[in-house]
Amino acid sequence: MSVQARTGPVLSLAGLNKSYGALQATGDVALEVAAGEIHALIGPNGAGKTTLVRQIYGSEAPDSGSIRLRGEEIGHLSVPQRVRQGIGRSFQISNVLADFTVIENAVIAEAARTGDAFRFLRPAVSDPVLVEGAIKILSRVGIEGRADTPVSDLAHGERRLLELALALASDPALLLLDEPMAGAGPEETQHMIGIIDRLRGDVGILLIEHDMDAVFRLADRVTVLVEGAVIASGTPDEIAGDAAVRAAYLGSDDDAAA
């Protein structure tokens, strides 16, 4: 590992561009997520937040620009390769294995994490080694009590928690969270905020969130995206006080961000 790999940002984007026809979804974006920090990415609907996450994750190729994970260029890697390099992602629309139970979801994630998924003999779901790891995965978000519940019976908030657990299962260095509280009730939101807060320091998080209360409670830094371009980046206080941000995004009326 280079010095930069240990001390530098976990993610750095430079000159990233992506157009859909005439629409510039990502415009010359530069952004850094420091190791262990929670970096919020905010912006109005259609600003290009999910598109940016998809380029970092590898499911969408940028037109140009560089994506570095711990200092190493990853732009040429596939999604599974990037995951194995240390990227975890939760999706804007819940994305868990809906036909399985909670523990089965985690067992598969554990088999993937240990790199031993290509085995044909021993039953996976009753493998004590996998189950032990799976329970650990679930307990990070506190849903190990729901282990035997089919995913289809989970409440929406519990699904979001399971998804977070799966994103964390591979012990990522960078976690991409695309609106993790979307659709959750107030209590579930508080629970989720607590869990994300406790991840601070362990994993760099790029957090897309519309809930400004959550953003200003969690974020170490905030980047504001409007029409594909970064219009401001800084501490929550700086962003709350930024005139351009208030005009473009938070609304021109005073105290919108409070």
Binding site: S78, V79, V83, N95, A98, D99, F100, I108, A112
Partner: peptide
């Protein structure tokens, strides 16, 4: 799992 949700399996780092 792939039958039900290929993208989640990819997200776990499997091909």
């Amino acid at each position: 799992a792939i039958r039900g949700n290929e993208s989640r399996v990819e997200a776990m780092g499997l091909v």
